[in-house]
Amino acid sequence: MVKYDNLKDKVVIITGGVKNLGALTAKVFAKQSTRLVLHYHQEKDQHIANNIKIALEHTGVEVALYQSDLSNESDMIGLFDFAVKKFGRIDIAINTVGKVLKKPIVDTSEEEFDSMDTINNKVAYFFIKQAAKNMNNNGHIITIATSLLAAYTGDYSTYAGNKAPVEHYTRSASKELMAQQISVNAIAPGPMDTPFFYGQETEESTAFHKSQAMGNQLTKIDDIVPIILFLTTDGWWINGQTIFANGGYTTR
């Protein structure tokens, strides 16, 4: 594998790339003079997507936007075809898509399970598949998982359960793509200080989550983006791993 000492002109796909972790990741890669394909989920977020596109383009980078819920493989194929047609190649693919549901198993409906399974599991699988099919040699595939994979807890069965397969997809793909020298890794943050987290929690549960990590705080998106960048540069030798980055919230 060849380390990317310079990310200039590398083509980077980021799903969920206009909000929270995805948006900060896009901004950091923009500083490296990459070319960006930013996916966003809902049409109602088009103005947010356009604003980040304009802001990044003012820094001198090329940005393309793609809207889809990615709920079926044809949508995922469309995303990667769009990127290849726009920029000619793909070098780095980062999937930040996820959805949280905090609910006991006995209260979870089939509809809720199917929705969680699609967003956290199916999207991750076909993202890795299409990245593998379309990526240049010496590329990097990164998926955001969750530190709840190592937690002993109730109420997050669909979230942690549907994220759990990402570890297996990561290992399998990393082995299958060795000949192309494409690294495949997952990052498992602790509960992150974003709106993604707070919609499911109370003040009491938030305080508990904070108490489980260093500094009595939630994971910040600023804590995760440097790891993403590292895996595409100096961390090129890391492959097939799930990195738990959570301030000690959980351990293996």
Rank of each mutant, 00 (worst) to 15 (best):
Y4V: 07
D5G: 14
K10D: 01
V12I: 11
K19E: 09
K19R: 14
N20K: 12
K31C: 03
K31A: 15
K31T: 09
S33T: 10
S33E: 15
Y40R: 00
Y40L: 00
H41M: 10
D45S: 11
D45W: 04
N51R: 11
I52E: 07
I52S: 03
K53H: 05
K53R: 11
H58C: 13
G60I: 03
Y66N: 02
Q67C: 13
E73F: 14
I77G: 02
F80N: 00
A83Q: 00
V84T: 08
K85R: 11
I92W: 06
G98W: 04
K99G: 12
K99Y: 15
V106C: 12
V106D: 12
T108W: 00
S109K: 00
E112Q: 10
D114N: 13
M116K: 03
D117G: 11
F126W: 09
K129G: 09
K129Y: 07
K129F: 09
M135R: 02
N137C: 13
I141N: 06
I144C: 06
T146Q: 06
L149D: 02
Y152W: 12
Y152P: 07
K163M: 09
P165Q: 02
E167A: 15
H168G: 14
Y169K: 08
Y169P: 04
A173N: 06
E176D: 13
L177D: 01
A179S: 15
Q181Y: 09
S183M: 05
A188T: 07
P189A: 03
G199Y: 00
T206Y: 06
F208V: 11
F208H: 12
F208Y: 13
F208K: 11
K210F: 03
Q217C: 10
Q217N: 06
T219N: 05
K220M: 09
I221L: 02
D222E: 15
V225D: 03
F230R: 05
F230W: 11
G235K: 01
W237V: 11
Q241W: 05
Q241I: 06
T242H: 03
T242C: 09
A245L: 01
T250M: 02
R252H: 14
